[in-house]
């Protein structure tokens, strides 16, 4: 009787151990990969390299049409801007890119960009995403990654 009991309890202990190990492994695996899979999914949702290139082209076009925003880009080399913005969007959406441009703070300092200017530019980007057929949830996920940069863009 006692033998059976101790046998049962040892099986129980082993089972508990096995479950604990499995859960720990699963957690490690998930946390290890979560960032990567989630990030890559946004990159893919944006249409990868080509999708981002189209977004950036159209964004540059929209900016050039905007009387309020275009002046901020008067001294900007459009080709360099296209390249760096593509890298940045690729990078923050989890794509296989390195952002090699200047920091947000450096590239916007001295420009006195107001909240309203910032917001008009966000609206331009949203328009571009709408025109390119980027689904609303994907737009929000991209905006979420971009939002923390605001403090390094306005009133500098």
């Amino acid at each position: 009787m006692t033998q059976a009991n101790s046998q049962a309890s040892s099986i129980l202990r082993d089972a508990t151990k096995a479950i604990a190990i499995t859960l720990t492994a699963a957690t490690l695996h998930l946390t290890g990969c979560a960032g990567v899979t989630q990030d890559a999914s946004l990159y893919r949702a944006l249409g990868g390299e080509q999708g981002i290139a189209r977004l950036v082209d159209r964004f540059v076009e929209e900016i050039s049409y905007s009387e309020d925003i275009a002046p901020f880009f008067a001294d900007t080399d459009p080709d360099r801007f296209r390249e760096k913005l593509s890298e940045q969007l690729c990078n923050i959406s989890g794509g296989p890119c390195e952002y090699t441009g200047d920091s947000m703070r450096d590239s916007h300092s001295g420009m006195s960009i107001s909240e309203a200017d910032f917001n008009k530019t966000v609206d331009l980007l949203i328009n571009v995403m709408n025109k390119e057929g980027v689904p609303y949830p994907t737009q929000n996920r991209l905006l979420k990654r971009l939002a923390p940069m605001r403090k390094d863009i306005i009133y500098l």
Binding site: Y136, P137, N140, R141, L143, K144
Partner: peptide, 10 residues
């Protein structure tokens, strides 16, 4: 407001 918090919805 949490951007994209619920399956991409705000």
């Amino acid at each position: 407001l949490h951007l994209g918090a619920v399956g991409g919805y705000n």
